Amino acid sequence: MTFKKINENEQQNIHDRSCMILVNFNSKELAAIKTVSGFAGIRDRIAVTSKNGNTKIKDILDGNMVDDNEDVWSEKAIIFNNIPTNRVTGFLDGLKKMKIRRPLTAMVTEVSIDWKLNTLIYNLKEERKAIAKGQFVDHK
Rank of each mutant, 00 (worst) to 15 (best):
K4M: 08
N7E: 10
N7Y: 04
N9R: 06
E10H: 01
Q12A: 09
Q12G: 03
N13Q: 13
H15A: 05
H15L: 07
H15D: 13
D16A: 11
D16R: 04
D16Y: 04
D16I: 02
C19R: 02
M20H: 01
M20I: 10
L22E: 01
V23F: 02
N24Y: 03
F25A: 03
F25C: 07
N26Y: 13
N26R: 12
E29K: 15
E29I: 13
L30P: 00
L30D: 03
L30Y: 07
A32M: 08
I33Y: 11
I33F: 14
T35D: 15
S37R: 09
S37N: 12
F39Y: 10
G41C: 04
G41T: 05
G41W: 00
I42H: 07
R43H: 06
D44P: 00
R45I: 14
I46N: 03
S50G: 12
K51D: 11
G53A: 04
N54Q: 13
T55S: 13
K56P: 10
K56H: 09
K56W: 05
I57T: 14
K58G: 00
D62A: 15
N64C: 12
N69Y: 04
E70H: 06
W73T: 08
E75P: 07
K76N: 05
K76G: 03
A77E: 02
I78C: 08
I78S: 09
F80T: 01
F80I: 03
F80C: 06
N81C: 10
N81H: 08
I83W: 00
I83L: 05
P84E: 14
N86I: 01
R87L: 09
V88M: 01
T89E: 06
T89K: 10
T89Q: 02
G90D: 12
G90H: 11
F91H: 09
L92D: 02
G94D: 05
G94Y: 00
L95R: 03
K96P: 09
K97E: 12
K97F: 13
K99A: 14
K99P: 03
K99N: 08
R101D: 13
R102T: 14
R102Y: 03
L104F: 06
A106L: 11
A106I: 12
E110M: 10
V111D: 12
V111F: 10
S112Y: 13
D114P: 08
W115S: 10
K116M: 05
K116D: 08
N118C: 11
T119I: 08
T119G: 15
I121K: 04
I121H: 00
N123F: 02
L124R: 00
K125C: 03
K125T: 06
E127K: 14
R128P: 00
K129R: 08
A132S: 13
Q135L: 15
H139Y: 15
H139C: 11
